[in-house]
Design a protein around this nucleic acid. Sequence first.
DNA 1: GGGGCGCTGTATCGAATGTTACGTATTTTG
DNA 2: CAAAATACGTAACATTCGATACAGCGCCCC
Lengths: 274, 274
Amino acid sequence: MVSSIAELISDRIGTMPAGERRAAQTLIANYPLTGLKTVAEFSAAAGVSSPTILRFVARLGFQNYPEFQSALQDELAAQLQSPASRTLNPSSAGGAVSPMLEATLDNMRETFRHLTDRQLADIATRLAERRGKTFLIGGRFTDPLARYMAAHLAIIQPDVYHLAGQESIWRDRLIDMGKRDVLVIFDIRRYQESLVRFAEKAHHRGVQIILFTDQWLSPIARFARHVIAGRTAVPSAWDSSAALFVVVETLIGAVTRQLEAAGAKRMRDLESLR
Amino acid sequence: MVSSIAELISDRIGTMPAGERRAAQTLIANYPLTGLKTVAEFSAAAGVSSPTILRFVARLGFQNYPEFQSALQDELAAQLQSPASRTLNPSSAGGAVSPMLEATLDNMRETFRHLTDRQLADIATRLAERRGKTFLIGGRFTDPLARYMAAHLAIIQPDVYHLAGQESIWRDRLIDMGKRDVLVIFDIRRYQESLVRFAEKAHHRGVQIILFTDQWLSPIARFARHVIAGRTAVPSAWDSSAALFVVVETLIGAVTRQLEAAGAKRMRDLESLR
DNA sequence: GGGGCGCTGTATCGAATGTTACGTATTTTG
DNA sequence: CAAAATACGTAACATTCGATACAGCGCCCC
């Protein structure tokens, strides 16, 4: 049984020709508002012609476009009257919402529960007001997080470097690091020996280390000035870095805010360079 | 200042003549759906004539009926996109939780609400059972997501390539791509022209494109076989890719499950290589 | 490589919608 | 109580919308 039109669409989207599929995707992307507009507007949004929209609607089993819109409105009416149902995934008629999503949301809540605003603010301040350089590095699966953070930080402040490539390459960068510098390390299970060694050496050079790790704490925690422990357990063969990802985004936002004056000017300068 | 049309109405309902007041009450009674219907239906519901509805709308300050409907739709769009705005009460959060976290959690719920299990399963199957190669590429800020996905997929199946570096480099890789191949693209605002061009060319070569984008849909959606639209709005200077990140992890998990037999063997082989 | 099929856009038509003019009813005011 | 002003509905109008026929195009299969 099909309870919602969205479900109906995703059932049949596989059997649709390209044009109608584009219509379907645009509708799903911000459901159901696009369907409430006129055919012309709908077709423009989807980048197809009006007849394609009508064929799309016909394929879903509606006699005409107004009938389709009425169905959408009825659905919307039901939703608006019981806001609680909005949090449920319609496809979860069986009851099971994506267990992956549930676990991830829990991980985030739990991660932030163990993270005080004070801690976040302190770390943000250290990243914003450091007098030296900022280096970022990650492990096998967490390196993208380091990259993501570096990509943003590098825009709002100078001297941000992501350490990539072979171990020998970034090991040699140690020579540039000193007390005024900050090193952001991402390391979750299984902890990488090379990263631990690197962290230890950096620590001895007086570098301030900010560590992103999992709840079991990488051995690097011994050398770290700040430690962020994210929950990683999900019903999957892999650990999840999503909670850490959100912490990263939160920090990026906080640092940006602190550097608002200086950062804004810098961003304008960058814009003008393009 | 009047933030919503409902407010505007209750402000002026006192100064309205009887007929228009009935219109106003009918609209408020099940707001805003009645306003989205036609003038004839609206008038019938309110028990007045069409011109009365139009006069009512004019009194609210709208030039014509379509303009009034557009305003209602915009308002509805804003509501639907941030469910937090309605449920947002600080006490239920149990203390000062980061608004950044709240918005992110909402984004994820909303993203998955627009994503049926069927869609995810279809995409996972395409990634798992493709007969050719898998290519991944991302934009300025989303490239780390492509890397993250590639890092995992490359472990459980062969022929997974992340396209990085200069445009000319991955443009040349087009020559290796064909009908049996899959191209995963990440592109959120502001959409990158170079990626669009790349996607178009790949599409013409018959490559199956899986697109990760935001709710406003990158122009690449025109060429994509599958589109995943994630919510990105957060109280920050930057857009959030966290929702897309979770979808990525979910897909990685699903593909891994599908390839369990083959993948497990492959992972054991990899282990023994170390 | 050729023939057939299916998909898609352009142009056109009919219908339904929003809009306006005008006459009647109702209320308000002197 | 009378007269004016306002409100309201009926009916005709113009516009926009949804629907359809048709031709071009690409694609797949033989």
